[in-house]
Design a protein around this nucleic acid. Sequence first.
DNA 1: TATGAATGAGTATTCATTCAT
DNA 2: GATGAATGAATACTCATTCAT
Lengths: 209, 209, 209, 209
Amino acid sequence: MAQRGRKPSAWKNVAPSRDELFALKRTALLREAARAFSARGYHDTSLDDVAKTLGVTKPALYYYVTNKQEILFECHMLAQDLGNVAYDYAVEHGKTGREKIVLVCRRYIELITSEIGSCAVLSEFAALEPKNRAVIAKRRDDFQKKFSELIIEGVKDGSIREADPRMTVFFFMGAINWMTQWFRPDGDMSGEGIASVFSDLLEHALKPQ
Amino acid sequence: MAQRGRKPSAWKNVAPSRDELFALKRTALLREAARAFSARGYHDTSLDDVAKTLGVTKPALYYYVTNKQEILFECHMLAQDLGNVAYDYAVEHGKTGREKIVLVCRRYIELITSEIGSCAVLSEFAALEPKNRAVIAKRRDDFQKKFSELIIEGVKDGSIREADPRMTVFFFMGAINWMTQWFRPDGDMSGEGIASVFSDLLEHALKPQ
Amino acid sequence: MAQRGRKPSAWKNVAPSRDELFALKRTALLREAARAFSARGYHDTSLDDVAKTLGVTKPALYYYVTNKQEILFECHMLAQDLGNVAYDYAVEHGKTGREKIVLVCRRYIELITSEIGSCAVLSEFAALEPKNRAVIAKRRDDFQKKFSELIIEGVKDGSIREADPRMTVFFFMGAINWMTQWFRPDGDMSGEGIASVFSDLLEHALKPQ
Amino acid sequence: MAQRGRKPSAWKNVAPSRDELFALKRTALLREAARAFSARGYHDTSLDDVAKTLGVTKPALYYYVTNKQEILFECHMLAQDLGNVAYDYAVEHGKTGREKIVLVCRRYIELITSEIGSCAVLSEFAALEPKNRAVIAKRRDDFQKKFSELIIEGVKDGSIREADPRMTVFFFMGAINWMTQWFRPDGDMSGEGIASVFSDLLEHALKPQ
DNA sequence: TATGAATGAGTATTCATTCAT
DNA sequence: GATGAATGAATACTCATTCAT
């Protein structure tokens, strides 16, 4: 999807190439669809609505995606990517298991609040068709496994008190994912603010004694 | 709707009266619908499906409800009731603010896990029509306010460390509500088990030091 | 339908007999249905509406009629009867053809305005099922034929100027039947008032010179 | 919607432009629907019927209208337009009030008999939804008012004998509107024939002495 | 690339009618 | 005589998807 290696186009790449334009438009489509899906739900959002908001007609969308399902699926993928980004960041910057866990939490919240429109789609899991649902579920499980391994690590290095790793992950993944239901970018609490409160709560929940 | 005081019918009231039958059937309808809504989403669940599962025809449903919306709305109401039940229980049995909070959490989880089918409907908030959505949102807010007052109480009586009450409520309400997305009654963790883990995490997150 | 010759019941006929009660209720049903059909149209009137207005439940109606169609049909019959009543009256009281025609017109208007609710049903001719439609059409034609014969009679006796009898009948039957579309019993023009104006117009339209 | 001034397309404008095609199809739809509504009544005519007759599928209709109601409404509007056309013609060509009235009558009949399918819809007034009904009623009243003013004019200029203007209008508007109930284009009386008979009757009904 | 036009499949809802009680 | 309950059939309307242009 990325176009790193393409041959230099004329105009010193000032104007985006055809491929870039395509990617740009496709992303805009996904973003707008995610926003709409989150607001009204997948099944209650017609492609006509999405198209109108983008200023094109419905059939035009089919040039960029093959399906309404594909849109939903891609949105899920994008939203999940944020989790991995947060994870990588935390593993790189944290030392103890607890530090890492808390960092994931903080970073993840910062990311999804900055992109909340696209992320709220996570609650439309049921609307995925079986095949896609399986893929997304698998990725979710993988992510949560990596997560619970951080907890195990923390228990080993003494930074985290004895706790059921899986349940603990469910616990704070729930706290974070549920944000899509109430967070408003224009609310009186910034993404960073929430990240602080939540990671603080998490830290106390986990640390020994 | 309850028929406590009605004149004793024959058969020692073994057979349900007409009104009771009506209520029974209506409840069965709501339960089944909630299960379906949770599994496939509101918009993707046809009343035909619900009716078929109940062994009746679609129009028969309309004898018990006026609308598909009404079903969704009533499901939300029922699910929300559990929260209040848990709250009342906790206020009655807990002493300090923290004790109460933890009790609500534990009791609430026990309740929703025993009735998970009906509760998972909570994630279909967006499918409510505006008027109903407003009602449910109001009740949700009221509930969360009562909740955060328990936290304030705990901070005052010293059982809870200094914390943003509203965010704290969002934090663990999220943890609990998200359960509807992963909890399976036949999973390897019982409702009580989860209740224990979650209320323990909550307790540590809140207690001073 | 009338019960003239029935054997004297007890109580000196003070209380209506079973048969009379049946007839009474049936008539009330037809009247109310006619009113509703006129106001909202046949297809837009549900038997539930009719039943509710009568203070019974829908299935109860089926004790008095076999069909929704039957109701419409009987209403048409009743409405048409008025025409014949008017005709008989006119033939009895008028001398020349013109006198008779004008009398029919006056009498007919008086009758339908006193019973407008039931008569407006005449515009629901299209809602009759083919078989019934044929019956009603036949009666309508018969009536109009008797009518045009009065015109022929008038032309012969010199009270009416030369005119196409059939068209003339259509002309003023239309004028009269259309009343069902605008006449209101509580309007500023009484049935007698209209009868006067209309029969006056008719008289001038027909008389020689 | 008309394309008078558009840039001349190839083929000497033989082929209708896109917009023209749209308008053409929409009109065909309205015409066919009117015919069906008149024959079977609004509520007893399914859009499936209409679509099938037009050789398209039902959803295709929704490309041209938003509603079944819209169809009925537009049909009423078109039918009413004929009245105004007749009125304008009469005012232009007639001298005395009576001449004008008689001309309206004649012209109007000629118009509706040539378009009887669309006009018969006038008897489906009750099927209009309240909002639309109000609009149509208003136009009808306006038309009848213009009409009765012609009568007043005739009374003043001595061409019409003293008469209640409103009732007189009702009288012959009824005669004419009722035609939709019996006129058949293939009957033994042409539109012009009827126009002659009716306007003759009207003339005699109105003229002094 | 994008659009106008059309379609097939689906779905909520209404309602006349029936029947056991 | 009347009712609660249920059903079958019908119908307006929506929408993802396709395709010629």
